[in-house]
Each structure stands twice: as structure tokens, then as C-alpha cells.
């Protein structure tokens, strides 16, 4: 039986890790991008960012003061047993958010959209967001937090089947160019593309593609994987680098997630996960032990299933 206290502590710990320690996959990715960058200003920006990650880890302070909108993704095993029920998990994560906001400290970004009032703890109406997913056969709970800024770098469009791959390329270029100018989307970034689903699913898939898959990960569909690489090259050939300066450093990696959609449409969303790509995951085992990692492993074969039932392991 997993206690509510263990869930709270694990959630608190990943809030801290996400804010402070850059994930290794992203750091390696950014170094690869830096090696290819031949422009002085764009190169200077990336070198400075790498120094910033080191300072954050050494000082145990947030790598970016805009600690974004802290949120959670929870994957619960069919056989997991936990005290307090699902609302207990939510209560624990809200408590962890408020404590981490004070202790790390995270910036209390969350305000009421109209009255601009706040609780100074990143907790409020519908915040932090919690997205749920399930996994057969296992008895653990995975909790991932993502800290992502929220103002720039995301867009949505209803395309149609006739728009085809050209439409996707055009919309990606539109989004990267419009938000890449002056570096408002804090590139070089991990770009996530959501294709299909309902409009809201499309947004959600693109966001998860950007935030919950690591650099180097490819979609299991070989043709989609190929498209990921092709679109990444397009992003890096715009001629725009870090901060919108001349350069080639726009996209560190590009991930596509798809969902079956309306026969008449091809909705698309594009999301950019910034230079401070903050994510951390805790696996809480049945015996109450906790393991930490930076790969959320969110898109399991079960998560991407397309059949009615599921016979896989």
C-alpha cells in the first residue's frame, strides 16, 4: 500500500529536481546543436545557457526564474494500491506544489485570469493541471512534473486532408518564424507536434510530444519517425538561431504524436519546450520506495494502442 505521504514527498522532490537540474538528454542535445552553430551571437547564447545549467546545479537554484506553470502527469498501474484514493493523490500533489513554491523557490506565477489575484503558491482553480494515464499489469505509480513557460511558441490550426504534408510544413514554419523572432519561444527548443484527435486532444498531444519525450526518441511508426527528422531539418534551416539571431540553432529535437481524427480534418498543434526544458519523474513502487529519472516514459505501447482490447505486456 503506497501512503499519501510518500506521494507528497516524491511530488515535492521532482518539483525541485525539475526546476534545478537540466535533463541529461536535453543537455547532450543542446551541445550537439552548439557544435553545428557557426554564428557568433547565437553560439554565445548557447554557451551561456550551458554555464547557466551548471550554475543552477552547483547552487541548487532554479535554472530559470520563470518556473512556468508547474503541472503533473500521472500514470497509475492497474495493480497499484494507494491510500487515500485518487483525490488523495491530487491533494498530495497540490500540497507538494505549494511547499516547493516556497522552498525552491518557484515563482508563484499562477493568478486568476480576470482578477489577477494569487495564492502565492502556484495552486488555484484548475491548477496545477493533472493528466491521468494508466498502465496494465504493473503495481507502480509514475508522477512526472513539467515546468514550462506559457506565453509564446504554441499555435493550433485546423488543416484538411488535402493540405497534406505541405500544410504541416507550412504551419510549422509559420509557428517557428513568428515565435522565433527575438527568441520569444526561447529556442533552441524541443518541438512537439500534435496531429489529429479532437481540437483539444490535438493540443494535448502536441504538448505531451514536446514535454514528455526525450531528445533522440523516435515515434515507433517508421514513416512518422522519418517525418520527425525531416521537419527538424526544416526548422534548423530557417536561418534563425538562439534569440532569433542569425544561425542554425532552432530545434533540438522534434516529436510527433498522432490521434485518430475526424475524417474531414487534420488538426495540427505546434509547441516549443524552451531552453530550460524542465521535467522530472518519480516512480513510486508498491513497497513505497521511490526512483527518480528524467525520462517520463509516458508514451508506452499501451498508451498509443489502436485496438479495442490490449493483449500486449
Amino acid at each position: 500500500m503506497i501512503s499519501n505521504d510518500v506521494i507528497e514527498l516524491a511530488s515535492y522532490e521532482i518539483m525541485k529536481q525539475a526546476a534545478i537540474d537540466i535533463p541529461a538528454d536535453y543537455l547532450d542535445g543542446i551541445k550537439t546543436v552548439a557544435e553545428k552553430e557557426s554564428e557568433q551571437l547565437s553560439g554565445f547564447v548557447i554557451k551561456t545557457m550551458v554555464k547557466n545549467y551548471e550554475a543552477a546545479t552547483e547552487d541548487r537554484r532554479p535554472m530559470c526564474a520563470d518556473t512556468g506553470l508547474p503541472r503533473y502527469y500521472v500514470k497509475v498501474g492497474d495493480k497499484a494500491q494507494f491510500q487515500g484514493g485518487f483525490t488523495g493523490i491530487e491533494r498530495a500533489m497540490r500540497s507538494a506544489t505549494a511547499r516547493a513554491t516556497h522552498d525552491v523557490p518557484l515563482r508563484p506565477n499562477r493568478v486568476h485570469p480576470l482578477w489577477r489575484t494569487e495564492h502565492n503558491n502556484n495552486v488555484g482553480i484548475n491548477s496545477p493541471e493533472v493528466e491521468w494515464s494508466f498502465e496494465p499489469h504493473v503495481d507502480w505509480i509514475d508522477i512526472t512534473t513539467v515546468h514550462k513557460g506559457g506565453l509564446f511558441g504554441t499555435d493550433y490550426r485546423m488543416l484538411f486532408p488535402g493540405d497534406g504534408i505541405d500544410g504541416i510544413k507550412r504551419f510549422l514554419l509559420d509557428t517557428l518564424i513568428s515565435f522565433g523572432k527575438r527568441g520569444l519561444c526561447c529556442q533552441p527548443a524541443i518541438v512537439g507536434i500534435g496531429l489529429g484527435g479532437s481540437k483539444d486532444t490535438c493540443m494535448q498531444l502536441g504538448k505531451q510530444a514536446a514535454c514528455l519525450r526525450v531528445v533522440g526518441d523516435r515515434n515507433p511508426d517508421a514513416k512518422i519517425a522519418e517525418l520527425e527528422l525531416e521537419l527538424m531539418d526544416i526548422g534548423n534551416s530557417i536561418g534563425m538561431g538562439a534569440m532569433g539571431f542569425v544561425g542554425s540553432s532552432m530545434v533540438v529535437d522534434l516529436h510527433i504524436e498522432v490521434g485518430h481524427t475526424h475524417t474531414g480534418g487534420m488538426p495540427i498543434s505546434v509547441h516549443t519546450f524552451c531552453l530550460s526544458s524542465r521535467r522530472a519523474t518519480a516512480r513510486i513502487n508498491a513497497d513505497g520506495s521511490v526512483e527518480f529519472r528524467t525520462d517520463p516514459k509516458w508514451f508506452t505501447p499501451y498508451h498509443r494502442r489502436e485496438t479495442i482490447s490490449w493483449e500486449g505486456k
Binding site: 551561456t48 543552477a56 547552487d59
Partner: peptide, 14 residues
């Protein structure tokens, strides 16, 4: 003056 990369929160915090 512009900040660099925009995420140099730790360096500026120092």
C-alpha cells in the same frame, strides 16, 4: 540591454 537566451536565471541569481 537584453538578457541572454532568456533562461539564465541561475547566473543572474548569483
Amino acid at each position: 540591454l537584453t538578457t541572454v537566451g532568456y533562461g539564465t536565471g541561475a547566473l543572474l541569481g548569483r
